[in-house]
Amino acid sequence: MKEQQLNESAIQVEKEEFKKRQRRDKLKQLLTISSPIFILLLWELLSRTALIDPRFFPPPTKILATLYQMGLSGELFTHLQVSLLRIFAGFLLGVIPAICIGLLMGMYSPIRHFFSPLIMALMPIPTLAMLPIILIVFGIGEFSKMVTIAISVFFPVAINTAAGVTNIDNIYVDVAKNYGANAKHFFFKIALPGSLPVMLEGIQMGQAIALLTIVAAEMIGANSGIGYVIWMNYKAFLLPEMYVGLVLISFFGYFFSLVIRGLQSKLLPWK
């Protein structure tokens, strides 16, 4: 009887402890949501009271209203569409060869030795610095923008994929060999799935770089797209309109990361 009572009070203690932990977790979640809201409110307040110059830092509500107006006119969507198409096409154009070459480099050391000095030498060059050459070779059309993105995405994905394959634990290679796996089996059962986690990290990085590159490229050499919207409105000193461009980039960057993270948990159920 007494023992049972003791046991119950022990449960009571742990229950309290558990509730406390839950409350703390909720507080942390609240902090995550509140930090952007806090900054936006502060910005709004400072801008409205002209403590910071509202010409350079228009209040967020005004930016939102501008976003709404620009959306109504429909022009914003054309720019958005153009940028997104460039990103998607350029991304695929870079990622697909990067995965192929990365896998080959990881699996066959002669290929690795052949390609790695080229990659190491080309990687440090900012893609934008190559823009003149890209324009000369591919013209000023859409394709040259896609190529720019493709090049900037290519390097992190190729390097990560190759590293993903070479980092596969040797014991799995031994298992495959001992159980008679041929080259095709080795590729599909060991190299590809084994390198996938690191490869996806490369793709996550590539995605962020693609967004940076397209905006910068559109600022320099384009007459459409989000980067163009930012640059033109800056030149015309239409700062709320410029901020709309920045907000959109932030939104899509966040959105793409979420998509790829979702893809990660779908593709790697074993992690």
């Binding site: 634990d169 031994d174 001992n178 060991i190």
Partner: peptide, 28 residues
């Protein structure tokens, strides 16, 4: 097959289910 090896426990391939791991040699 001539021989098969029982590897140490870390030789179980993490991206295959138990079933796929056991069937690995047969599939090959």
């Amino acid at each position: 097959p001539l021989q098969s090896m029982v590897f140490q426990e870390r030789g179980v391939i993490p991206w295959m289910t138990v079933e796929e791991n056991v069937a690995f040699g047969l599939k090959m």
